[in-house]
Design a protein around this nucleic acid. Structure first.
Lengths: 240, 240
DNA sequence: AAACCAGTGGCCCAACTGGTATGTTTCTAG
DNA sequence: CTAGAAACATACCAGTTGGGCCACTGGTTT
């Protein structure tokens, strides 16, 4: 076991100064050079100590600006686009997906219009039954032009994130989704798939997803069990 | 790989604020000095970020006048916070509101926690039946601390926008709302008020609204008829 | 019509900051 | 005694800061 090193010493003294509240939350510390002089060690040593404090979360750095004492912030979850898979992972659950349909067909007139492709152009239709840790939660129907998703037609989409696969296989990254949600009763077609009585409340989410360049990439209709899903968003009010 | 600089940070934050519609199209941004103060960086740094945004076409400058958000942005309408009244007006309908309850009572423990006030502090409870052009569409229940809404307790809230009244009477302007929506069946209490059978699908929206300074202002629970309302939002996927 | 004024972006600058690289000294375990 | 790790010293770089000053704009006052 090594003796107490100079950077250990510096680390302890800095940490104590912080816990004692010597520097106010949100304030900037003296520069590394000044700190080094004050503690009578070299700059490299002070930096080693600062690195440890950053790893502890007791300090945060900002290049060319200085070291700052973190403010205790009340977490404000931003309005962010999450895939079903990511959502499940965040909650410690496992997302599953069973493929109900995966075939190439001609686009309907409405689909073609929304996707900005020629009417009756080829699209990949992918319908999956999605669940969290086993129990079915959502019927997820997606339509993607084959020009974008050609490779996906043959890919095994069970238990995979569509967003991830689009990125990996086709190199298309979703940037924005226009989303609308609506409450309705479960149809005779969907109710048995979700294991609920016909007419039970379901949440229907309709999505048009766009790539980074603004071109439409996919249409989605997600039918969630009403008691198993909640849609969250942050809305901003423009400054008039 | 370069380190993330302060101006990168400022650029990203400004761009996100713009894509989220935080500043209305055609409006002027706060001055460079004010922006710099708000983002806690120096003016030169904010200017670097603004220059990049101008190059992106996300902002346009006018010397000696300010920075402006271009009128017609390329994209679709962003996810923006609209009051019920504004929404109706946009569709050429008239929003009506009938007051079902308007009284001051003690906050529940949960309400107090969400509003950041002392448990059992006084709050104004306002429950209204909202309709568009006559037909009932939504039961709208709101809870506001009396310290904020004191004057509203006596105001006639029929056919008025709560957001507007808060601004006018109490000088509080809503900037952001954390919103969640969920499908459920109409309860025996609410079904007759909306004129629908018990168990019919309804969309339940829960809102926590925040003022400009980030302090919570009101809680809302809106119960919409499933067949009469659709919730729309744009979601953005963070750039990894 | 003219004078004034507060506020704006445009521009410049010296001082300072952390990031990085290099080389030297000091200490200590083996 | 020696090899290697830790600490020290120095220098340079690009980004940031907080000033100050300017010309101009839009309103208000004279």
């Amino acid at each position: 076991m090594r003796a107490r090193t100079a950077s250990d010493e510096a680390y302890t003294r800095l940490r104590d100064a912080l816990t004692r509240g010597l520097y106010a939350p949100g304030s900037r510390l003296p520069g590394e050079r000044a700190l080094a002089a004050e503690l009578e060690v070299s700059r490299e040593t002070i930096r080693a100590a600062l690195d440890r404090l950053e790893a502890d979360g007791a300090l945060s750095r900002s290049a060319q600006r200085g070291w700052f004492v973190p403010r205790q912030t009340v977490g404000e979850p931003p309005s962010v686009l999450q895939s079903f898979t990511e959502m499940a992972r965040q909650r410690g659950l496992t997302a599953t997906a069973m493929v109900l349909e995966q075939k190439v067909r001609a686009a309907t007139f409405e689909e073609a219009a929304k996707l900005g492709i020629a009417p009756s152009a080829q699209v990949l239709s992918l319908i999956r039954l999605r669940g969290m840790s086993g129990t079915p939660v959502c019927v997820d129907a997606n339509v993607i032009p084959v020009t974008i998703a050609g490779a996906l037609a043959e890919t095994d989409m069970a238990d995979a994130s569509l967003y991830d696969q689009l990125d990996r296989v086709s190199g298309v990254r979703i940037r924005r989704s226009a989303y609308s949600v609506q409450a309705d009763g479960a149809s005779t077609e969907i109710a048995p798939q979700l294991g609920i009585p016909v007419g039970s409340p379901v949440l229907i989410g309709r999505e048009v997803a766009y790539a980074h360049d603004g071109s439409p990439v996919l249409l989605g209709v997600n039918t969630y069990r009403g008691d198993a899903y909640r849609f969250e968003a942050d809305l901003y009010r423009p400054i008039s």
